[in-house]
């Protein structure tokens, strides 16, 4: 599984200390590519862990999101942080970004939070 392309498209095998020295390397050059996570999901499923596979597939979708957005959605999913409307907005944003699995997760959370009184009451 090694020697895969990073988020930036650079191949992991091509990354050298010389590039670091030259200041030519960015974090995106050592950031995982969604295709790699999809391939890792296949491996996890093949070894019988469907939930781990599902996690990798959700992760593959999240690679496209900026760090700040990932952290903001996490914060919004904490108990009593978001109204139903706010969670719905996140669901829409995730769907728009092609993050269907994450959208489904947040939608499911919104449903359960409503049942269990975990939404923020304004």
């Amino acid at each position: 599984m090694s020697h895969r392309n990073a988020w930036s498209g650079m191949n992991a095998a091509d990354i050298t200390i010389d590039q670091v020295r030259a200041g030519a390397l960015q974090l995106d050059d050592v950031r995982i590519h969604p295709d790699t996570l999809i391939a890792q999901a296949d491996v996890a499923a093949e070894y019988g862990n469907q939930q781990l596979a599902e996690n990798f597939l959700r992760a593959a979708e999240l690679t496209a999101l900026p760090d700040e957005q990932v952290m903001a959605i996490y914060e919004a999913l904490r108990p009593h942080r978001s109204t139903a409307q706010e969670l719905a907005t996140i669901v829409n944003a995730l769907q728009a970004a092609g993050a269907q699995r994450n959208a489904a997760l947040v939608a499911e959370a919104a449903q359960i939070y409503a049942q269990r009184g975990l939404l923020r009451q304004d």
Binding site: R31, I32, T36, L37, N55, F56, R58, A59, A60, E61, L62, T63, L65, D67, V70, M71, I73, Y74, L77, N102, L105, V106
Partner: peptide, 11 residues
């Protein structure tokens, strides 16, 4: 669950 995927999304 979301946090777990967040970590994986950054490898």
């Amino acid at each position: 669950a979301f946090l777990t995927s967040g970590y994986a999304s950054r490898g």
